[in-house]
Structures are given as structure tokens and as C-alpha cells.
Design a protein around this nucleic acid. Structure first.
Lengths: 242, 242
DNA sequence: AGCACATCCTTGGTCAGACCAGTTCTTAAC
DNA sequence: GTTAAGAACTGGTCTGACCAAGGATGTGCT
């Protein structure tokens, strides 16, 4: 019984500085404060901030690398890795133009956008909401003079910012991969709607606004609904061009 | 997969001393040169033998610990901690022989095998399909002279290869844990069928072949069906021994 | 003898400071 | 504006030291 007490005490014992650093970095990554692709604080910075020897900092950082959460490069900075990247390998090429495939992509995207918006509404910083608002305004102002490709990129950026604001490592990671991988498919959707209607439907602009408003009010359910509907709207546009 | 990359690298670049030490220690453990419970060379010994700084030795040793291969104790020696033992030994004694438990295991396995086969049909590399074919042939050729235990291991290996071919992290991870943890239960199934019928029923061999054929044709639905049926067949055999 | 206790040596854990070898940002020359 | 040299980073490794926690040893006592 004395042993049990002792073990309970061990649960209470304060974290060592090394453990604090480990927990801090993992928290930063998992919570989305450090987004995949962003750099981590340098080891020497961490030495100062956590009052540790660099050898100890290195052991923590090295473990993160072995866990696949970050990558280090001799001479360069340590970079937060996309945790999904190692698991996802989409081997098929050339399917970006396939309509059925594009429809599938939109299905997945509807779910993803919904989740991203949901968490973004809950967890986005005020700064991030401002950034999203600014990006949204820019999209409208410049919408006249843009090519379809630029439109697609702007659309991508808008949704990427929302995903990053979710502070959810899985959503951020997956959306990064997703968008990069299937940009062509998304671009194809915009192109088809342009061909069919001669211009981009007003619905898209309106939906973007509804999404932003829900985010601004931090109405998570509404944000999820709007984001999901937006994608499904685009999906239906796509299907109707068939 | 990681092994392939690592071995390819080793053909090109010379191993660093750190990598040499890492490989040496893992080899000692995996090959059984260092038996579970035995002590590892002290870090200072390794410093001398491999002409490394102790900080570098520590980084290697620490990784082994985090991989669960060894345990370290402040002031004491580092001790080999073979991972296999912890999974193959059943946590609760006698539960491996419990029929109801075995039936439950088979239920779960039916689902798992189905999913694994489904994704394997879609995503296995040609190399992996060849490996599975070769393993399948070996199972048949040597089937006469094998003990029940060897049979169970071969069966396990066959299904493990399929799971790994699924390229699906959840399936792979779970099946690894699952198989290791409930190996005894699976072994019990084979043993019961042997006791009841005096030999292994032909159905199993045939079903294995059907699974492989579906994989070879990359017919995902068929593969899922065959794999699931195979396990349910074994499950029914088990139940009929009651 | 057998047992308890203090001691010393070895071990793993941590630290500080240094050097090397790459990368990245500045800056000055063109 | 471009480009090339260099300064100022970065991560990777090394050295040598100290600390704290076993484990072994020896001593003293009963």
C-alpha cells in the first residue's frame, strides 16, 4: 500500500523541464499553433526559453522528428511536418479530369470544409478572423480582373485559411494535402461552371460571405452547415454540366 | 517500406557512427544476442567502442527506450525489454482458452480482414502481391510437416502481409496489435479445428486461394467478401466444437 | 557466523561551451 | 535589378564536467 501511495505521488510530481518542453512543442503542433510547413523555434531559442542544455533540447526535438511530427535540416530550420503525408499516397495520376472522380473529391471536400469551419468558428484567433475577412474582401474587389486559375487559387487560399484557423492538426494536415493534391480537380470545377454559365455564379460569393459571417459570430454549427452547403452547391454545379 | 528506403540509403551513403551504433544495438536485441532482461553495455562503454560522444550515444539509446526495446534506470543499467513478449503473453491468464472470447475475437477479425483485403486489393504494390503469392505457395508446400503452432504463425503471416498491403495506417496498426495480442486465441481456433476434424479443413486452404485471386485481380469487393467469409468460416468451425 | 550500515564506484541524466558544416539573409559590387 | 561574397544564423557533434541514484564493498556490531 505504501507503494501505491508512492506511485500516486509520482503521478503528481511536477514535470521536468524536458517534459515541459516536449509537451509544449507537441501541444503547439497538435493544436495548430504551429502549422505544417511552418518553422519551429530554433534549438538555441528553446535553450533560452526553457533553461535547458542544448543536448536536452536536442533529445526532445529528435524524438519529435522520429515521431514524424517535424523534420530537421542541417543548417536550416526545423519544420513542422504534415502528419498525414506519410500515410496518404494517392498513386493514380491523370484522374483530375475525370468527372466521377471530381464528384468524389467534392464529397470529401464537403465533409472537410464543414469540419474545418466548425473548429475554426470555435478556435480561430481574432487575428485569423481578421485575416480571413481581409482575404474575403480582396476576393470580391479583384474578382473582375482575375483569370479562372487565379480565382481557383483565391478560393483555395480562403478555404486554406479557414482550415488553418481550425487549430486542428488533422484538419490542417489533411486539407493541405488535399488541396495540393486535387487542386486540378477543384480548378476543373470552377472552369466547368464558367463554361456553362459564362461567369461564376453569385451563389459562391454569397456562400463565402455566409461562411465568414458564421465564423465571425463564432457559430460553429452554422459555419459547418454553410461550408458544407457551399461545397455541395459547387458539386451540384459540376454535376449539372454533365 | 521504411526498411527498403533505409537499406537503399545504406547502399549509397556510408553509415554514420551513430547509425552504426543504432543498427548494432537493434541487431543485438532482435537477433537475441541480448536476451530480454539482460543488461546493455553501459553508455560509457559504447562511447569507447564506437568512438562517439556520450551525447550521441545517449540519443541512440534514448530512441531504443522510446521504441520500447530497452528500459533505462537512473543509476542502474539499461535493460533489454523485448517487445514481443509483452504482446504475445496474454495479459489475462486463461482467457485465451475461453470460447466466448475466441468467438468475439473472430467477429472482430472478420471485419478487420475484410477491410484489410479491400484496401489491399486497391493499393497493394505489385511487389507486395508477389510476396503474398510466394507466401501462399510456401504455406501449401510445407503444410504437411508443420505443427499447429507453425500453422498458426504461417496463417498470421499471410494475413499480416495483406494488412500491410492495405497501405492504411489504421488497419496496419490495429492488425499488428491485434494479431500479436490475440495470437493465442487464433492459435486456439486452429487447435480446436484440428482436434475436431483430425486435420485442417480444406476450406481454409481454398479460401486463402480465393482471397489471393481476388487481390491479384484487384477486385476489392470480392477480396473483402472472401476475407470476411474466411474468418467467419473459421468462426463457425470454432463454434461447432462447443 | 550473520546482519545492518556507511562508503565508494559505476551508472544514467544533465549541463555548459566549443567547433564544424550546412543554410539563409545582407550587403556591396557590378 | 542581378549577382556574388560574406556575415549571421541553423542543426549536428564533441568534450569534459557535475549530479543523483543504484549496486557493490567493506566495516562494525550483535
Amino acid at each position: 500500500m505504501g507503494e501505491e501511495l508512492a506511485s500516486k505521488e509520482s503521478l503528481i510530481t511536477v514535470l521536468t523541464k524536458k517534459q515541459q518542453l516536449d509537451r509544449f512543442l507537441r501541444q503547439e503542433i497538435v493544436s495548430g499553433s504551429i502549422i505544417p510547413g511552418q518553422v519551429l523555434p530554433s534549438q538555441r531559442q528553446l535553450v533560452d526559453e526553457f533553461s535547458l542544455a542544448r543536448s536536452s533540447v536536442r533529445e526532445v526535438v529528435q524524438q519529435l522528428e522520429l515521431d514524424g511530427l517535424i523534420s530537421t535540416a542541417h543548417g536550416g530550420r526545423s519544420i513542422c511536418q504534415n502528419v498525414m503525408a506519410q500515410y496518404i499516397d494517392m498513386p493514380v495520376e491523370g484522374v483530375g479530369d475525370n468527372l466521377a472522380f471530381q464528384l468524389q473529391v467534392m464529397e470529401a471536400r464537403a465533409f472537410l470544409e464543414g469540419e474545418a469551419a466548425y473548429f475554426a468558428a470555435l478556435r480561430a484567433t481574432d487575428q485569423q478572423l481578421e485575416d480571413i475577412a481581409r482575404e474575403f474582401e480582396r476576393m470580391q474587389v479583384r474578382s473582375k480582373g482575375l483569370t479562372t486559375l487565379d480565382k481557383a487559387k483565391a478560393d483555395l487560399r480562403f478555404h486554406t485559411m479557414i482550415a488553418e484557423s481550425s487549430h486542428h492538426v488533422l484538419i490542417t494536415s489533411f486539407s493541405q494535402l488535399f488541396y495540393n493534391r486535387y487542386f486540378n480537380a477543384i480548378y476543373g470545377v470552377l472552369n466547368r461552371t464558367l463554361i456553362k454559365f459564362g461567369r461564376y455564379p453569385d451563389g459562391i460569393r454569397m456562400q463565402h460571405e455566409l461562411i465568414y459571417q458564421a465564423l465571425h459570430k463564432r457559430d460553429a454549427e452554422q459555419a459547418k452547415k454553410m461550408a458544407s452547403e457551399h461545397v455541395l452547391y459547387t458539386r451540384n454545379l459540376l454535376e449539372s454540366t454533365d
